[in-house]
């Protein structure tokens, strides 16, 4: 699995050196589970040796990735935002177990539609921080849009 991601990453990074300045790119997708249930998928492509942190970082640790979904009349959130496995390490600086992502990270949020098969948009904001071994980019907020149709 890791090998595949790595290969994808290499293929992509060959393209954009300018991505070094903006090491995390977000894309969104929507998957239909049933007429009343959808899955919102936010994927981060992380270049080079940069890290993106898990949503579940102990307090006092590095800035976790956080999602805020703007509520509207068309849907209700179902459960929390899931994330992939990532890498867990004992961080020597924060002295705690920290999970981070390299290469790629996928976050999923299930939602329940109030009206079956309705069409609408869900706006969300992801707040995150990217680091490598020697520096971090200041915390950043990115707007995401999920198109339910």
């Amino acid at each position: 699995m890791k090998k595949i991601f790595l290969f994808l990453l290499l293929a992509i990074s060959a393209n954009g050196f300018s991505q070094i300045m903006n090491p995390v790119k977000w894309t969104t997708a929507v998957k239909k589970i049933s007429a009343t249930e959808y899955e919102l998928i936010a994927s981060a492509t992380i270049s080079g040796n940069w890290h993106l942190y898990s949503q579940n970082v102990p307090k006092g640790g590095p800035s976790p990735t956080t999602f805020t979904f703007e509520s509207n009349a068309n849907y209700l959130k179902k459960g929390n935002t899931n994330e992939g496995a990532g890498h867990t390490v004992n961080d020597p600086v924060f002295k705690m177990k920290i999970t981070f992502f390299e290469g790629k990270a996928v976050f999923k949020q299930r939602i329940k539609l109030k009206k079956p098969n309705s069409k609408f948009k869900v706006n969300a904001v992801v707040e995150y921080m990217t680091c490598n071994d020697s520096q971090c980019l200041p915390p950043k907020e990115v707007d995401l849009v999920f198109d339910i149709k």
Partner: peptide, 10 residues
């Protein structure tokens, strides 16, 4: 610096 920045805290 920033609180969540490990290289800064180090």
């Amino acid at each position: 610096w920033a609180s969540g920045c490990a290289p800064c805290r180090a």
